[in-house]
Amino acid sequence: MSPVIEARALTKRYGGLAAVDGVEFSIRAGECFGFLGPNGAGKTTTVRMIYCASPVTAGDLRVFGIEVGDRPREIKARIGVCQQEDTLDPDFSVRKNLTVFARYFGIPAARAEERSRELLEFMGLWERKDARIRELSGGMKRRLAIARALINDPDLLILDEPTTGLDPQSRHQVWDRVRGLRRQGKTILLTTHYMDEAQTLCDRLVIMDHGKILVEGPPVDLVRSRVGKEVVEVEGYPPGLVQHARQSGWTFESDTGRLFIYTDSGEAVFTVIAHQFPSERCTVRTAGLEDLFLKLTGRELRE
C-alpha cells in the first residue's frame, strides 16, 4: 500500500531560518506516527505544510499520493486537524461548534447533528453540549477540538500537541481516546514533547531538532539501539568515577551534578560502582525515550 504521507527533502524557510530542513519521512496507513522534539524544532511547521496551510519552500510532499500544492481541497477534505492553539469558536456552544464545522465539509445538517452527538458522547462531552466555550476546562476544550477534527470522519488525523497544558487525568483521558481511534484503524500523526506520550501512543516516531530529523523508528527499538537497556544514574559523582568510566569503555554523559551510564548490563555496572565508590547515590533503571531524547538534543535549556 502506498504511504499516506511521503516527504522527500522537505524544506520550509522563513527568511534566513530553515524551520524545516530537508526532512524525509513516510507514514503508513493505520499507524500512529509521532513527531517528538523540543520547542521550535519545526513540528508545527511540518504539519502545517501537510494540511496545506503553509506553502512548501523546497522538496516534495505528498498526502494520499497528491502533491500538496496541487489539490489542497481534496487533501483537506480527508484530513482532521487539532491545532496546537485553541481555535474553537467562542461565539458558539459546544454542539454548534461541531455542526458549523460540518458545514465547511458539506456534510448535510441531519447527518451533522447525528455525527456531533456520536462524537460528543465518544469524547465524554455530551452533558456539556449546550455550554459556551469559555465555560469549559482546558481538558474539555482539547477533547472538543479533537471531536471537531473527527467531524468529517478523516482518513488522517493530525494532533498537534494534544495534551500540552493538561492535568494527568485529562492527559490519560485524551490518550485513551487516541488509542481507541488507533484501534479503529485511523492513521494518526501526533506531535508532542512528552516522552511518555510518544512512548505509549506511537507505533513509530521521529525525533526532530532544529528542523532536522535525528532518528526514526519504533520507540522501543530506538531506545534499545541508541541508548541500551538500562541507565545507571550516579548523583554527586567524584572525578575518579569519570576516569573509571572512560577506562572501562562505558557510554556515559554528565550534567552538573549527575553521571548517566548507558548500558545493557546495569546490574554489573552498579555492582562495580557500589564497590569502588560506595558513598555515592546510585540507581539503575530501564532506559526510556527521555534518555534517548536528552542524549540526542542535549541537556541544556532551550530558548
Partner: peptide, 14 residues
C-alpha cells in the same frame, strides 16, 4: 483573537 480563519483553513475551504 479567535483564530477562526486558522481553523476554517483546515477544511476544504481555501
Amino acid at each position: 483573537y479567535q483564530r477562526t480563519f486558522d481553523s476554517i483553513m483546515t477544511t476544504p475551504l481555501t
